[in-house]
């Protein structure tokens, strides 16, 4: 019974049908399905599949956005039923597009995927200076600083941010991840980031892995 509901829920999530997701989520709670299972098996599994399919361009951006919306709906309903431990955030992430670059879509996509996967995400927008990244990270007590760039001319600021963290003795406080169209693994490694993922889908497993380690220890790359 509960497997059946979760299967239907995952399907509705994949299709981005918010109304059906709402109905099935409530149904699952009423039937006594564990809140953690509703999130993982009903929501996250579908988003994983969707993220992977988008990275291969067999589904498209509108469907991904609809599913993100549906996932937020699911979380709204389920959250009050979570125990303190289950409801705990996986970690706090500051995300933004580097200075000189106003591209918003890719960065927002990563933010949404991280958020629906259980991270607390603070999106500080586009054209973000090194100062702003560091200041916001300090203000919020972030675990991870995530920087995006679609312009090769802005990727310099990723390097700049890491350098500043080093110079100010703060590098050990934050894990730093970078990504975006022209950003490659060897560049991320060269500038001393903690990690790199090629796609929004990959950024979720990257951040989960990094939360198991202390900042600035080993470099992790997710080529998916």
């Amino acid at each position: 019974m509960s497997e059946e509901i979760l299967k239907k829920l995952a399907e509705a999530m994949y299709e981005g049908d918010s109304d059906l997701v709402e109905t099935l989520t409530k149904e699952a709670l009423d039937a006594g399905v564990a809140p953690g299972d509703i999130i993982e098996k009903g929501g996250v599994s579908a988003l994983d599949r969707l993220g992977k399919d988008f990275s291969e361009l067999v589904v498209f951006l509108p469907q991904l956005m609809l599913a993100g919306h549906a996932m937020n709906k699911l979380l709204q309903i389920v959250r009050p039923h979570l125990s303190e431990k289950e409801g705990a955030s996986r970690g706090k992430i500051i995300i933004g597009t580097a200075k000189g670059d106003f591209h918003d879509i890719g960065k927002s996509l990563v933010a949404t995927q991280l958020e629906v996967s259980g991270f607390e995400v603070i999106d500080i927008g586009t054209n973000v200076s090194t100062n702003e990244f560091i200041q916001k990270a300090e203000e919020t007590g972030a675990d991870i600083i995530a920087m995006s760039s679609l312009l090769t001319t802005s990727q310099y600021y990723m390097e700049d941010c890491i350098k500043r963290l080093n110079d100010e003795g703060k590098r050990g406080t934050y894990r730093v991840v970078v990504g975006g169209g022209p950003i490659r693994q060897n560049y991320a490694e060269k500038i001393g980031a903690d990690g790199y993922a090629r796609t929004a889908y990959g950024s979720v497993s990257l951040c989960k892995e990094l939360m198991k380690k202390t900042p600035d220890t080993e470099f992790i790359a997710i080529d998916a």
């Binding site: 291969e56 361009l57 067999v58 589904v59 498209f60 951006l61 509108p62 469907q63």
Partner: peptide
């Protein structure tokens, strides 16, 4: 357009 894993061309909006 981008070419997807099946060799088809699509924009990211489908």
């Amino acid at each position: 357009f981008d070419r997807n894993s099946r060799g088809e061309f699509w924009t990211m909006m489908g």
